[in-house]
Amino acid sequence: MTLKELAIGDRAKIVGFNDSGKAYRRKLLAMGLTPGTEISLIRVAPLGDPVEILIRGYSLSLRKGEADAISVDKLA
């Protein structure tokens, strides 16, 4: 499952990245999106782009393409 598929209020754990380039993966890692990190989907813009997540105590907005590159496991 990808981050883009979560519903508002869902919690998930990052498990990895889909087919993205090394430079792009490095950018996501620099923003704190590391495997094993827990995130919560806060809100989605009316047209679905961007999405806002809560990670490590701060809010981060990601575009649809960025959210689609992140693989997650949904938490109960």
Rank of each mutant, 00 (worst) to 15 (best):
M1I: 01
M1E: 14
M1K: 00
L3E: 03
L3K: 10
L3C: 03
K4G: 05
E5R: 00
E5Y: 03
L6S: 04
L6T: 00
I8C: 04
I8M: 01
I8S: 00
I8Q: 01
I8K: 01
G9W: 05
G9K: 01
D10I: 11
R11Y: 07
A12D: 01
A12G: 09
A12V: 06
A12Q: 03
K13C: 02
I14N: 00
V15D: 13
G16D: 07
N18D: 08
N18E: 14
D19L: 04
D19R: 15
D19C: 02
D19K: 13
S20H: 01
K22D: 12
K22Y: 03
K22C: 06
A23E: 03
Y24R: 13
Y24G: 07
R25W: 11
R25G: 06
R26F: 07
R26E: 14
R26P: 08
K27Q: 14
L28S: 04
L29C: 10
M31G: 07
M31H: 08
L33V: 03
L33Y: 02
L33K: 00
T34I: 15
T34Y: 03
P35L: 09
P35E: 13
G36D: 08
T37H: 04
E38I: 01
I39H: 05
I39C: 06
S40R: 05
L41A: 12
V44C: 07
V44S: 12
A45Q: 10
A45I: 15
P46K: 12
P46I: 05
L47Y: 05
G48C: 01
G48H: 00
G48I: 00
D49E: 11
V51I: 07
V51G: 02
V51Y: 04
V51M: 13
E52L: 11
E52G: 08
I53D: 15
I53T: 13
I53M: 11
L54F: 15
G57T: 05
G57N: 00
G57Q: 08
G57D: 01
G57Y: 01
S59N: 11
S59E: 13
L60E: 15
L60Y: 15
L60Q: 14
L62K: 02
R63F: 09
R63I: 11
R63V: 12
K64T: 08
G65D: 15
E66F: 14
E66V: 13
A67S: 14
D68W: 10
S71R: 11
V72E: 09
V72G: 05
D73T: 10
K74L: 08
K74C: 06
L75D: 07
L75I: 02
L75A: 06
